[in-house]
Design a protein around this nucleic acid. Sequence first.
DNA 1: ACCTGAACACCGTTCAAGT
DNA 2: ACCTGAACACCGTTCAAGT
Lengths: 194, 194
Amino acid sequence: MEALSMRRLGATLGVDPMAIYYHLPGKRALIRRVVESVFATMSVPEDGGTWQDRVRAWGAAYRQLALAHPNLVLQIVTDPAAILVAAVQANEALYAALEAAGLPPEAVVGAADLVVDYVNGFALAQASAPAAGTESMRSLVAELQRRPAEAFPVQRRVLGEHPDVEGRDSFRFGLDVIIAGIEGLRSRSTAGRQ
Amino acid sequence: MEALSMRRLGATLGVDPMAIYYHLPGKRALIRRVVESVFATMSVPEDGGTWQDRVRAWGAAYRQLALAHPNLVLQIVTDPAAILVAAVQANEALYAALEAAGLPPEAVVGAADLVVDYVNGFALAQASAPAAGTESMRSLVAELQRRPAEAFPVQRRVLGEHPDVEGRDSFRFGLDVIIAGIEGLRSRSTAGRQ
DNA sequence: ACCTGAACACCGTTCAAGT
DNA sequence: ACCTGAACACCGTTCAAGT
């Protein structure tokens, strides 16, 4: 996706590449516009279900968006202004779900950042995964085998014992662990039970 | 840090830029070598303390490395082969800590991926933060004010009520929530208590 | 074995000029 | 108001050639 160059864009528009500079101040501005319009696309079902389900729904929506537009996450994470645009657009539903969990404001912010950072990290790892599927599990094992036999014993042991990693959804797994952690926060911060 | 170009590297080595191609097959190979040598630098104290402390120590070490070499995380996450090199190097200590927590192998893998994805997401967000300090909190508020007043009500409310976000370490906060979530996994997967 | 230099096919961005 | 074209200062990589 260096396919998006000013010159190529100009070419596919059948226009002199430099015409773009009349409409936008530069390439970063172009990317910000793309980010903005893609995130306007992200629809996460408001309300309905527990706050846990709403966080999961948010995660699923973000992930779907990242899958539909690989490299986009990279562009976002690379440009402070794009981060802002994306964050403001996407965070609303997430904040709402976490507020519904009964968290105090600073915990809502902290928990939302955690979820966003995780989801971005996951999306990036997945975007540049060698082959889809086992999410680089096989290649990790292969890399280990290329190293001296006595190195990295724990990874060898754990990965040697690994059962079918095929069948599991590691995104969902991570998100569920995070949600469990947030549940702990909740009981710590609320006086009674709710 | 597009400062690392083959031509510039050649120049600072006082050598024809193309001489590099005799030693390495291309720029990606160069970056992989850099990643490899930087990660060889990452030292996380083996043993000592609870598994929770060891996970925190690992997180702190990774974070320090990311702070010392901003853009590096971006290069890693951008190149499948670099991911492998970095993962194999860094994951050993993390796997060891999670194994010590008494998790079954597939949970060790899942939890390690979660921690790594979070830490990468955090590092990337921080690397391109506009101004250090509040971690883009101020600019998020500013961005909100540039939008129509009726938009994004939840974010306005929560961020309006936010107390001193200055004083808190949001990396540590997120990591602790994750650790709490992993503790939940543990009690679910072990027969007795340990 | 190691380095050089010219060349190729690209970039983003500027600036003066055209309609 | 909107587009063009030449130019500038870069990229990564190839390939034949030098020592």
